[in-house]
């Protein structure tokens, strides 16, 4: 029987945040993009105590299996990072655009959120068909913007991954 989840609570910062957590590539890296957005609650208010985790393929579409996400060496792209939201509910990653699949896989935690939520942020121009069609980042002067709405109007589509056999 699987172990149930529990909220990350209000005091996760000192446990989970670390220097370089949201910078998958150093600023100024050729091809660097910013993925950012706001996490909002059911009243449309920002959620300043959320944590977003990002997992993605590299710019050639490879799944990277290299250590070093917690202590980045400045040149290995590991494909994984985490970003806490600030006072305005904004999270922000510096990364590379994944080639294929053309989305950032995201996992969300927050105080008040009793279990993690999964979603995907597709690159602009790669809008999926069907029920995931709203999960597209928008191109904006500051990068790719992808807001996450926990509840209500514009509620983000969250995912439940089926267990399937290849």
């Amino acid at each position: 029987m699987t172990t149930p989840g529990q909220t990350v609570g209000p005091f996760f910062a000192f446990g989970l945040e670390y220097d370089g957590d949201s910078a998958l590539v150093p600023p100024g890296t050729p091809g660097a993009v910013r993925l950012f957005g706001r996490v909002l609650d059911g009243d449309g208010d920002p959620v300043p105590d959320a944590l977003v985790e990002l997992w993605q393929a590299d710019a050639e579409g490879r799944v990277v299996q290299e250590p070093g996400s917690l202590r980045r060496d400045g040149h290995t792209f590991t494909g994984w990072g985490r970003a806490a939201t600030d006072r305005t509910g904004t999270y922000s990653f510096t990364t590379l655009a994944p080639a294929d699949p053309p989305y950032f896989a995201l996992c969300l935690f927050a105080r008040g959120l009793l279990d993690r939520l999964f979603t995907r942020a597709y690159l602009p121009g790669h809008q999926p068909e069907g029920p995931l069609s709203s999960l597209v980042a928008t191109e904006d002067p500051h990068g790719y913007r992808f807001d996450i709405v926990l509840q209500g109007d514009g509620e983000t589509v969250f995912l439940d991954h089926r267990r399937t056999q290849d």
């Binding site: 008040g112 009793l114 439940d160």
Partner: peptide
């Protein structure tokens, strides 16, 4: 704190792919 921080719609079932 969960009142305004839980989704009200069911999650969409997807087959995990590639990176997932």
């Amino acid at each position: 704190s969960s009142l305004l921080r839980h989704p009200t719609k069911s999650p969409v079932q997807v087959d995990p792919e590639g990176i997932e």
